[in-house]
Simulated scan of single mutants.
Amino acid sequence: MDYQAYNDGGYQPLVVKRSKVKLVLLFAGSLLFMLLGVLLLKWSGEVTADPAILLRTLGIACTVLFGLAVVVYLIMLLRRSPLLVVDAQGIDDQSSAIPGGRILWEDITDIRLVRFSGQKNICIFLADPKAYLARQRGVKRWLMAINLRLAGTPVNITGQSMGMSLERVYEEMELRRRLWSGRR
């Protein structure tokens, strides 16, 4: 790959844009499952007690979970900023419902490409994850704390809506991190 140096002697920032096609498909799939949840709720009123409880439970779960996904994917479709920017100073992650935001290289101890819950993720390990969590607010902090317990880090990047492969994003991150560590 041919990289061009920029003003601080590093390489051009990596700017990862969203894949509109992937996002539209994720949005449409979530919308269909949300509508299925609404139908299950409707059908629960037309059957006997035992199946009604099951249909109502499934209907509520589908409607709520996939309804949230519809909102998240719609926001991601309307947002114009890149999903991810990796530059000489660090990473700016806006790639998911709980984006990591700006993380400087000096705060990152490791980056790993891992398979977690059936999908590949880039896990960003931080020097002080508890201090990072303390800077977050509300639901985002709570969700990132769950990430920390499950994956060992609050910041996980998935590639499901990216316009480039997660493997390539990982390689580019590692390249820029090595460049940064060589300049310290």
Rank of each mutant, 00 (worst) to 15 (best):
Y73H: 12
I146K: 12
R79T: 15
F125K: 05
D107C: 05
R137I: 09
L148H: 10
F125Q: 06
L65K: 00
V72A: 13
P99F: 02
D92V: 07
I98D: 10
F125N: 03
A131E: 15
S96N: 09
S96A: 13
L148P: 03
D87K: 04
R135T: 15
Q89E: 14
A127C: 12
I60K: 08
R80Q: 15
V86P: 01
L78F: 15
R80L: 13
Y132W: 14
A134S: 13
K120G: 13
D87Q: 06
V86Y: 02
D87A: 10
D110T: 07
G67Y: 12
I108D: 00
I91M: 04
A127L: 14
C62W: 02
L143H: 05
S117R: 15
R137H: 10
I111R: 00
A145I: 00
I124W: 03
V72E: 09
L77Y: 09
F66N: 11
Q89R: 12
P82E: 07
R149V: 08
I157E: 00
A69K: 05
A134L: 13
L77T: 08
F125M: 07
I111Y: 00
I108G: 01
G118P: 09
L77E: 03
L65H: 07
G101D: 02
V72D: 09
N121R: 14
V155M: 08
L113G: 03
S95E: 04
L83E: 10
P154Y: 05
A97V: 05
S117W: 07
I124D: 02
T158R: 12
R149I: 01
V70Q: 08
D107I: 06
D92C: 02
I157P: 03
R102S: 07
V72K: 04
L65G: 01
A145P: 01
Q119G: 05
I60S: 06
V85D: 02
F66K: 03
F116L: 15
G152T: 07
G101K: 01
A151L: 11
G101A: 04
V71N: 01
L83S: 09
G101H: 04
V86G: 00
F125G: 05
R80Y: 08
G118L: 06
V71L: 14
L104S: 13
V64W: 01
R80D: 10
I108Y: 02
Y73M: 08
G118A: 08
A134F: 07
D128R: 15
R102A: 11
I111D: 00
G101I: 00
L143E: 04
I122W: 04
V139N: 08
I75P: 05
I103C: 09
V72G: 04
S95F: 03
D93W: 02
I108L: 00
A69E: 07
